[in-house]
């Protein structure tokens, strides 16, 4: 990236490097949220609907893991994927896939814990009626996830915000390789350390804008569908 240019000039000129960085950031964070949702939504729902020994401890742990330090998650995934680690054979370290894995782990507790809370509240309202209609366990999960969809969109957004904004895991497992694993946050960190503050600040503004746009879009979807379904 030419260092004399500001971020706005880069955007205006449709700079290919900048575009690649933004695209990778979005692909990594959105993939991580999608994976976390695929696992976290049903996991949270099942946790909300079942009672077993140790459940309370699990719920408390899950809530606590919402605040997992990204560098620790990054370090853990690094150790798993490093050449001498158990999954070293796969050669995934310093690839976007490693970044997606690490961010999924970071986002999963957020999605699962918020889903658990949402579904548990909804269940206390729906329990009698669903029981009376003879709805089985899988039907309950499906019904509650669908009827909790407005709050669950918010849970997914919280996960996305966390993934898009963090720098610790992607730096450690991605390595900030130019043109391959450099994301907006790692680029900002790099430009800041090089003293290129205007560019770093410009990238930061691009990042914030993107997060705002995605949140606004999700908000719009929520309002629109709420008007139709109550």
């Amino acid at each position: 990236m030419p260092e004399s240019l500001s971020a706005w000039e880069l955007i205006a000129s449709g700079d290919a490097t900048l575009f690649a960085i933004v695209r990778l950031s979005l692909v990594v964070s959105l993939s991580a949220v999608a994976i976390a949702g695929l696992i976290g939504l049903p996991l949270g729902a099942v946790l909300a609907l079942t009672r077993f020994p140790g459940r309370t401890a699990l719920v408390v742990t899950l809530n606590g893991f919402m605040g997992l330090p990204p560098v620790v998650v990054g370090l853990t995934v690094y150790l798993l994927l490093s050449r001498s680690g158990p999954l070293g054979e796969l050669g995934l370290l310093f690839t976007p896939i490693a970044m997606i894995i690490a961010q999924s782990l970071l986002v999963l507790p957020i999605v699962a814990a918020l889903t658990r809370q949402t579904i548990e509240d909804l269940w206390s309202e729906y329990r009698d009626e669903l029981t009376a209609m003879g709805v089985g366990p899988s039907g309950r999960v499906a019904t509650l996830l669908w009827d909790g969809r407005f709050s669950l969109i918010t849970a997914m957004l919280a996960g996305f915000g966390r993934a898009a904004a963090e720098v610790g895991t992607v730096m450690i497992v991605g390595g900030n390789i130019e043109g391959f694993t450099r994301t907006m946050t790692t680029a900002i960190a790099l430009e800041t350390s090089k003293g290129n503050l205007p560019l770093a600040m410009g990238l930061g503004l691009v990042l914030i804008s993107l997060i705002l746009v995605i949140n606004a879009a999700a908000w719009g979807v929520r309002v629109w569908s709420e008007q139709r379904a109550g």
Partner: peptide, 13 residues
């Protein structure tokens, strides 16, 4: 079938 004192409406049409 039962109709509760305070019926629950699904968040749907």
């Amino acid at each position: 079938a039962i109709l509760f004192q305070e019926p629950m409406m699904l968040r749907r049409s």
